[in-house]
Design a binder for these strands. Structure first.
Ligand SMILES: NC(=O)c1ccc[n+]([C@@H]2O[C@H](COP(=O)([O-])OP(=O)(O)OC[C@H]3O[C@@H](n4cnc5c(N)ncnc54)[C@H](O)[C@@H]3O)[C@@H](O)[C@H]2O)c1
Ligand SMILES: NC(=O)c1ccc[n+]([C@@H]2O[C@H](COP(=O)([O-])OP(=O)(O)OC[C@H]3O[C@@H](n4cnc5c(N)ncnc54)[C@H](O)[C@@H]3O)[C@@H](O)[C@H]2O)c1
Lengths: 210, 210
DNA sequence: CCTTACATGTGTATAAGTTCACAAGGCACC
DNA sequence: GGTGCCTTGTGAACTTATACACATGTAAGG
């Protein structure tokens, strides 16, 4: 692993951000990108781009810019996106189903390897993507067998904590939680919460009483 | 509107966060909450909670704590969640359909008033929630008629910018964008981008090469 | 009515992150 | 091979945000 003196957390978030336009640039064939251009595409300052990248090495050429292909490869390596990650997901309702069908995750190396639900009606059903919905009591077994390290929670909020506990108990080390509740974990397990309503409330605030 | 000397942006985001446990506390009947307890529920420091709230007034009672009901009401007022907001959404695929069916938004005062798509197969279809999918060329008309101020984008990334332009042109002042691309706006319109892959990449980074 | 206890509200200190400004270094052209 | 141009990489200044520590105000109880 690259040596990490003390990387600001926002930097990591931005690295992921930078990779999007870079992917598009490769498609379009441009071999070179300047910090200024990349900054504009991502809505940050050029200095920010350079500083973020400099934490991890010298990826550019002074007076010239960054080689798009190399840069993307480096970023992907830093983020771990050059590997594949097995995911599991719990709660195959509307949102869960939308997620497993989405191509973007697979493209970036995130593979849904198991899907769980507690509803007897749903268990055993095969989804368009080919996965079969499994009962929650098989979490431990399948997490082990498929070497799953990341879990996604798309259950109702009331059971989200309980599900998180199951996942942690099964050896999951990172959780992406979509239920609008903060799930608690041990320090062996990282959590990212995604709460759309929070985003909306942000927007509403900025709109003011207008 | 409450006078706002200069509120840190993270504060706004946390206010929305605080409201979740408060809603639960009202259900469970607890009339009082301490900054320390609320902080724990939200994973922040007690001082942070107090400072955030103090930006907007004195909502607590020294030596006692905060009245849950009052506090929630104040937060909702600050965020604008005590009003109702009409939303429209463009791109009624898997994700879009999941969003309009979700109850949480309605509960918080966000009402999907119009849904748009460009697919002739989908236009005219009625969804379980009762909305009928409209063609994109009716955006301007319906945004005006329903006084819609917030737009949600759930189209493929390639057309997201184009859709954003349509929305802005129709008078939309705030956009919640789910397509994994940064959409550009005028300063008349705020944008919040939600990118799940960024969150996953964050998690993957923290897992390291493990 | 005064004293005690206690949690809030807040000025100040600390930390974190961003921008600035320029030195360092590579490329191309002469 | 030297010269000028251009963009990166980076230490320092600045800005923003968080944590600390205590003064402030309230309620309850004697
Ligand atoms: N749908 C959205 O657009 C959206 C948006 C934001 C947040 N969310 C949140 O995501 C979560 C899921 O939303 P949804 O719309 O898919 O809800 P949903 O009701 O369609 O799906 C929930 C699923 O979880 C399953 N489930 C319930 N208890 C379970 C348990 N103990 N173990 C395993 N599975 C269990 C249910 O059987 C169901 O299939 C909710 O917390 C919701 O608030 C959804
Ligand atoms: N599904 C997910 O879980 C998920 C997760 C993260 C991000 N996203 C992003 O959200 C977006 C939608 O995802 P999805 O899974 O619902 O995709 P989808 O393909 O199921 O739906 C896209 C919809 O947009 C419509 N559309 C296409 N061009 C349009 C246009 N010009 N105007 C109006 N509508 C148009 C299509 O007809 C389709 O109904 C994508 O950008 C995707 O990357 C989805």
């Amino acid at each position: 692993m690259a040596k990490t003196p003390k990387i600001p957390d926002p930097t990591i978030e931005r690295l992921a951000l930078y990779s999007r336009p870079l992917e598009a640039l490769i498609e379009s064939g441009s071999p070179l990108i300047l910090s200024e251009k990349l900054a504009e595409l991502c809505g940050v300052s050029p200095a920010q781009v350079r500083k973020d990248l400099a934490y991890f090495g010298e990826f550019g050429v002074r007076g010239v810019g960054y080689d798009v292909r190399t840069l993307l490869k480096e970023i992907k390596h830093i983020l771990g996106t050059d590997r594949q990650w097995a995911l599991c997901i719990v709660g195959m309702g509307n949102l869960g189903s939308a997620l497993v069908e989405n191509e973007n995750f697979r493209k970036r190396g995130y593979i849904f390897s198991a899907a769980f639900d507690s509803d007897p009606e749903k268990i055993g059903k095969e989804m368009p993507c080919g996965l079969t919905i499994e009962p929650v009591n098989r979490i431990k077994e399948l997490v082990r067998d498929f070497h799953i390290r990341i879990g996604v929670i798309t259950t109702p909020p009331l059971v989200a904590q309980q599900v998180a506990n199951l996942l942690i108990d099964a050896g999951i080390r990172a959780i992406l939680n979509f239920a609008p509740i903060r799930v608690r974990t041990t320090d062996r397990c990282t959590v990212e919460n995604v709460d759309f309503s929070v985003k909306l409330e942000n927007l509403a605030y900025h709109l003011g009483t207008l």
